[in-house]
Design a binder for these strands. Structure first.
Lengths: 165, 165
DNA sequence: GTTAGTGCAAACCTTTTGCAGCTCT
DNA sequence: AGAGCTGCAAAAGGTTTGCACTAAC
């Protein structure tokens, strides 16, 4: 959904486009994905130092409730805050590397199939679906193997010289 | 995983089976699924009033890191706390009704298919996978329809008599 | 006897709320 | 004009940490 379309949607719902909201909407729109409230706040403050953190939270809540952004946890990598992304047309899963924190997105019709199965199995009306996967990306798998080898060598060395220096 | 097996696993890792941990493990094992820290704490206190909330958090963290329990958000229905369930053999999705809070579980090989696709697409080594779905259960769909009708009638009534009493 | 684990108090981080004043429409 | 929104301060909710004491191995 484009920035202009989002503004229209809000206007239609009788929600005021204040200076602060315009700024926040722009920032969310421009930014890459997966912003958390604090990052958004800091970005906003550079352009409007008086803008309050509370306004950020209130705006995000508004957008979330209006279905204009999705809220993610990203496996709580880096804390318990929430992340937000503008709602894309296509459902996708988030894949988080537990070592480097990189987030990949997976599109694929398995997700739609899952959705349909759940709707029919339970007669459930789905509003939001969230799949988050944690593990190690190809790159970090290698690095972890190295780290583990080093740790083993350290332990062996410590074993040879019984007491710690 | 059975209670005894969990205890063994912990022992093998050199983790002490203190009185407090034994109690918490039992409670987690007995309880139905989807316990949050506070509930577990309250249950534990009935049997050991001196057991501290902090110990509950530390034990849950331990179990989570050891892969003995899974941590869930359940779409933050009812707050931002986490829920825990003992790790079952079978991966499943959690389906949360946003009106009544009921949680259903969905097993199905679509989930395994999704898992495999992600592993091969990204060369990703999956540690935890979490699918949570929010929406309205069959029962609440009906109730919501009624509520919306009532709301419409209220608005109409309010419209007929312009000022609020 | 060590070392890991506990309890307590206090801090922490993220998010929400109450209220007076400002601003969009 | 007036409801809606903002900023500020303060609180809430959930979780973690530092430290002295205790208990498991």
């Amino acid at each position: 959904m484009s920035l202009a379309a989002t503004k229209d949607t809000l206007k239609q719902r009788g929600i005021r486009l204040t200076r602060q909201r315009q700024l926040l909407l722009e920032l969310i729109d421009q930014s890459g994905k997966h912003l958390d409230a604090e990052s958004l706040y800091r970005m906003a403050q550079e352009r409007d130092p008086k803008l309050n953190r509370v306004t950020v939270y209130r705006t995000l809540k508004l957008l979330k409730e209006g279905g204009l952004v999705d809220e993610l946890d990203l496996m709580h990598y880096g804390g318990d805050q929430h992340y937000y992304e503008t709602r894309t047309k296509q459902e996708h899963a988030h894949i988080v590397c537990l070592r480097c924190g990189k987030v990949e997105e997976f599109f694929g019709d398995v997700l739609q199939r899952l959705r349909r199965q759940i709707e029919t199995t339970f007669g459930f009306q789905i509003v939001i679906a969230r799949t988050e996967i944690g593990g190690y990306c190809a790159h970090c798998q290698v690095l972890r193997a190295q780290e583990m080898t080093e740790a083993r060598l350290d332990t062996a060395a410590a074993g040879a010289k019984p007491a710690r220096p």
